[in-house]
Amino acid sequence: MASSDKSPSPMPSGADHPRPPGQPMTVEQHMIDKGAQLLQSLKPVKQMNQHVCTFALYSHDMSRQIETHHYLTRVNQDFLQCAVYDTDDAHARLIGVEYIVSDRIFEALPPDEQKLWHSHAYEIKSGLWVNPRVPGMIEKPELENMAKTYGKFWCTWQVDRGDKLPLGAPALMMSPQPVNLGQISPELVHRRDNKYNISTEVLRDSRVEIAEPEWINPQADYWKQHGKGFAIDINVTDMKLRAPFP
């Protein structure tokens, strides 16, 4: 029915605007939203406490690479959950969710689960992973933790494909790696560096002291060992029901 590696049929005309199509928000809708914001606690969202800018590659086509903006919530010392957006501005599109676990948790996962995850060591050591506007000194202890973690990132809106709206199946994403297909295009990195007035190369040099993990499980970054990526298909099935549907 739908697949992460199948391009959707074209949308009707009038959808040329890069942003999602739709009318500007009405004053009334702004009022409703503001009211709700005042009246509701919004506790889960308020726990987000870190902005990370980095890059990701589609598992089913690693030539497609995107800049990502992760808003992280640390649930405990071994687990983080992130809302992922395509930019860091107020109109950012929500493109997916990433979960991050410590090496301790990762090692206990079944092998079939592990192959959906990617390692973070290179991404951090290379300077690709940054906390925009956070000074290096403050960033460092967290980076040391993160270098040992693994991530599982589902992308639900393939904006780089030109999708005006979130179409099709979710896609599994992989992390940058120092070998061939895992390398991020220099233009993409350059564009990001310009935006934040940083240099990934300088960051890389400043991070040489961050310890390389002694062991990166080869079930993670599955493509590196096996030359295989993963696509997701959505198919029709029978349902268990309580009452007729729909």
Partner: peptide
């Protein structure tokens, strides 16, 4: 309510499919 919405009345299931990395020869084979 559009007849195609709500799964068209059917259940939907997600499945994992292994694909070759493109271009295949760019990945080292252990």
């Amino acid at each position: 309510i559009h007849p195609l919405a709500n799964g068209g009345g059917k259940g939907l299931i997600t499945e994992l499919r292994e694909v070759d990395c493109k271009p295949t020869d760019s990945v080292p084979r252990v």
